[in-house]
Design a protein around this nucleic acid. Structure first.
Lengths: 208, 208
DNA sequence: CACCCAATCTTTACAGTGTACAGATTTTGC
DNA sequence: GCAAAATCTGTACACTGTAAAGATTGGGTG
């Protein structure tokens, strides 16, 4: 898992990637608060001022990592078997969202820290928007609309509801609000017990 | 609104309060990222090392401010007229939660940044817990239980649902996710339009 | 009242941080 | 082959949090 950057190839080529990967492993190893531009430079065996030439500033580098984070998040939300009911798919996607947040807390927290990112970066906004697409599809199905339907007010309100709920849940979990129950490995409890219970209340199975 | 600390009374008494108030105004003026222990000391006309004697560390001071924040949050959640229906009260409390977050973004963000606080502080945990009490009462009423009933599994799951939803909404709003629509003063739109729409979907009025 | 001790605050210092600036080095384009 | 552009280093600066030691004040006790 330790990203070994291909040695003696700097000075011509892959410093940019090396810095991104170094940042990502820092986030995984030490969390968001463990990140430092200088530490990333150290791990890439490069002077503290080198990153500026590729990313402008610390926020530039972090923005790049956040973009990758949103893309990875989108992958976690993609639902595999699309056979089930819409609410079942929604819950599966919610679990994917929370699973991502718990598996990569540093990356996840970074993605919503606009004080650390370039707030007007177009690619970041696009990546963030793209991650919502799979959920939007499910919501449309939930409301009995075609996949390519326009997002009317109640639909986007429903999207907002789903998004807020999973996001709040993930955020509270990472803020240590449930930490009495979750020393570390018990994040399984969150995914297998608390989250489904919560979702069953907000999105009850359609009665038949 | 600008807190004028009573001059020439340091060196005997109110430095502790002065630092807390200074921190609070920094949060209001410059946001959470504008806070600096040294800046707080400057505003209290005191050396950079002085706060350590009262709060131990930066986290100690911020923890104190966060405790006040939770108490203020609890006040915003308290519902005035308890005459209405349970779901109406719940929505009113949700609006109070979001109103607090939008009115005091710095304080609100601080309260959930456990990397900046003393994570094991008992008073902080107590204040956080106390803020949930009004919501718990409403949830119990919603489920037709007496006010002093035990919090069974579905009840606490419902609480978690409500908490996650408003928290996620507030957090997304402050993360600039809806910032296309909200330059600044249009946070009214969030409170008056988006939030009620979302809540009506998750907690529909009981049909009659 | 005098005294000592504890609390309070200042001074100084140190290890880090992000990044601006100027210079060295390497790669690329023509 | 050589100038120009891209890339990286070295140095420097203004910050940060806080540790350590000394000055100053206040309160309680004899």
């Amino acid at each position: 898992m330790a990203v070994e950057t291909t040695r003696e190839a700097y000075h011509h080529g892959d410093l940019r990637d090396a810095l991104i990967k170094a940042t990502d492993t820092i986030l995984a190893e030490r969390g968001l608060e463990g990140f430092t531009l200088r530490e990333a430079a150290r791990r890439a065996h490069v002077s503290p001022a080198a990153p500026a030439h590729h990313f402008g500033s610390s926020a530039g580098l972090l923005t790049e990592v956040a973009i990758l984070g949103f893309e990875e998040l989108a992958r976690h939300i993609e639902v595999e078997g699309s056979a089930k009911s819409a609410t079942a798919r929604l819950k599966q996607q919610a679990a994917g969202y929370v699973r991502f947040a718990l598996a990569y807390p540093g990356r996840f927290q970074l993605m919503f820290r606009y004080d650390l990112l370039l707030p007007d970066d177009a690619r970041l906004a696009a990546a963030s928007e793209l991650a919502k697409v799979p959920i939007a599809r499910t919501i449309l199905a939930l409301r009995g609309l075609p996949e390519d339907a326009e997002l009317d007010a109640p639909t986007s309100a429903t999207m907002l509801a789903a998004w807020s709920t999973v996001h709040g849940f993930a955020h509270l979990a990472l803020s240590g609000k449930f930490s009495k129950l979750t020393p570390e490995a018990k994040s399984q409890h969150l995914l297998d017990e608390l989250l489904p219970q919560m979702l069953d209340i907000l999105w009850p199975e359609p009665k038949r």
